[in-house]
């Protein structure tokens, strides 16, 4: 049985309030900055809270908040890994000459490679999120790679109960 999807709203059908709420989802990446704590988990918590506060404000808002939330996961994990690794390096004790062989989390070329990956991932995340925020404010859909599809399935699957006229619906 094929899945039924609700219609995607067109820009003229999306109210200013919905646009702003959708845009706000992408700006949750600044959550840690706002809280004054350089912990990547703060951004994720902010995105989760924002999703739960706004998920009932229409499918358009739900889609953007979900996409923002999903895209937070890999960045948060990568950033948390970097913080963990950096702390391990800073707190290493023992003979500096045998650090690399004794400890897999010593400052080695793998660490610098990982650092480059994290910086690139954050830059990409930042750019895509800003584009997403601008598009959302214009009442447009914008699909991130992989996460966009996932968020679309979650936000738009199932017909609108108002459109079908049915009050009772099967479990999701």
């Amino acid at each position: 049985m094929s899945r039924i999807y609700a219609e995607i709203p067109q820009p003229e059908e999306v109210s200013t309030r919905e646009r702003e709420d959708a845009m706000g989802a992408y700006l949750m990446m600044f959550g840690a900055l706002a809280a004054g704590l350089p912990l990547p988990i703060i951004n994720l918590i902010a995105a989760v809270v924002y999703y739960y506060v706004n998920r009932n404000k229409g499918r358009f808002v739900k889609f953007h908040t979900l996409q923002s939330l999903y895209s937070q996961f890999p960045t948060t994990i990568l950033n948390a890994g970097l913080i963990f690794w950096t702390i391990r390096i800073l707190t290493l004790t023992g003979n500096p000459e045998t650090w690399e062989s004794d400890n897999p989390f010593a400052e080695n070329s793998l660490f610098w490679g990982y650092l480059c990956v994290v910086i690139t991932a954050n830059l990409l995340y930042f750019i895509f999120s800003i584009v997403g925020a601008v598009r959302a404010r214009k009442g447009r859909m914008y699909y991130f790679l992989f996460f966009g599809k996932l968020a679309y399935h979650r936000a738009f699957s199932g017909p609108d109960s108002a459109a079908t006229g049915h009050v009772n619906a099967p479990p999701k």
Binding site: M23, G24, L27, M28, F30, G31, A34
Partner: peptide, 9 residues
């Protein structure tokens, strides 16, 4: 957090 984001908006 919302105030900080609102500043940019």
């Amino acid at each position: 957090i919302l105030r900080f984001i609102a500043w940019w908006v």
